[in-house]
């Protein structure tokens, strides 16, 4: 159980200035509490990888943590645009960021290649699209067997991946269920893996044998943060706070309001506050 440590320590020990880092979770299980801790600790010059930057990277970019973002869909899902990320791209506020843009298929393939220990990924993609013209990391190769032209992108190899999961057992094995997204691949592609969980249980006795489980020896640190995905959700524990996603559109639209919101809700808060935020969203 030595891997179970407070979130502040897990972030301090595993995330360094200048690191390439993925906070993954495909709409579900987004590790918001871990990201807020990184913001509180004032991490700098990060290269952020995430398929959908979402609110979680909008906050990190808005607070100036990112120097580069590798992504495939920079929207507030179902609501609209990511206004802090836009401000950084369009106006260099609060700092200029470099962007490396892909499609979802490319990002998913790049994580899978990272997990598989491959230097790059090959897939049928980007035909006729303009992204290869603006992203030099998208190239094309010819299949040596069929002659078909295929897209190639470099594998993702984060220094550290942060994910949120339902639970760990006493041995430190981690269970993920519901929309499993790309977390297993993002975790296995990384040098270090930090997982926040809703709870720790004795064992996984009686659960279905094919559930997604990351064995304890693939994980660097575990922190218990109840509600740690909010306003994203944890299947079986609490629902997505869709109203908070709608509200974010207003908060992020104004630099002043954003700064104030981040001060009250992140800088002056602690991880315990997430348990409060999910009240009323539990089944």
């Amino acid at each position: 159980m030595s891997k179970v440590i407070p979130l502040a320590q897990a972030v301090r020990d595993n995330l360094n200035d200048g690191d390439t880092v993925a906070f993954e979770g495909f709409t579900h299980l987004i590790p918001h509490a871990a990201a807020h801790e990184a913001i509180r600790q004032g991490k700098k010059d990060l290269t952020l990888i995430r398929m959908t930057p979402d609110i979680v990277y909008d906050q990190m970019i808005g607070m100036g943590l990112a120097k580069k973002v590798i992504f495939s869909y920079a929207g507030n899902p179902g609501v609209g645009l990511l206004r802090r990320m836009r401000d950084a791209i369009e106006n260099g506020y609060p700092r200029e960021i470099e962007t490396v843009e892909h499609s979802h298929a490319a990002m998913a393939n790049a994580y899978e290649a990272g997990a598989a220990g491959m230097p790059s990924a090959f897939f049928r993609g980007y035909k006729g699209a303009d992204l290869p013209k603006v992203n030099p990391e998208i190239r094309f190769v010819t299949c040596p067997f069929s002659g078909e032209e295929l897209a190639a992108v470099p594998a993702h190899r984060p220094d550290v991946t942060f994910i949120h999961a339902q639970k760990a057992n006493k041995k430190g094995d981690v269970l993920i269920e519901g929309i499993v997204g790309v977390q297993k691949e993002a975790a296995l592609a990384a040098k270090r893996v930090v997982v926040t969980v809703e709870e720790i249980v004795e064992d996984f006795e009686g659960l279905h044998p094919n559930l997604t489980i990351l064995p304890n020896w693939t994980i660097t640190a575990i922190s218990i943060v109840k509600g740690g995905a909010h306003p994203s959700y944890t299947h079986g524990y609490y629902d997505r706070d869709n109203a908070a996603y709608l509200e974010w559109d207003k908060v992020s639209a104004d630099r002043e309001l954003f700064t104030q919101w981040m001060r009250t809700n992140v800088l002056e808060a602690t991880p315990d506050i997430f348990a409060e935020r999910i009240k009323g969203l539990q089944a």
Binding site: F26, T27, H28, M51, P77, G78, V79, H104, A105, A108, N109, Y111, E112, F123, R124, G125, G178, I179, V180, G181, V182, K184, E185, T212, Y233, H235, D239, R240, N242, Y245, L246
Partner: peptide
């Protein structure tokens, strides 16, 4: 209607839910 493409209800009412790399590789590609 889901607000996002990953709302929980989509998973609860689905025949099966697969990982995102599988979605794009096996099913779409």
């Amino acid at each position: 209607l889901p607000l996002s493409i990953g709302d929980g209800e989509l998973c609860e009412t689905a025949v099966t839910t697969v990982a995102v790399p599988e979605m794009f590789r096996y099913w779409l590609q």
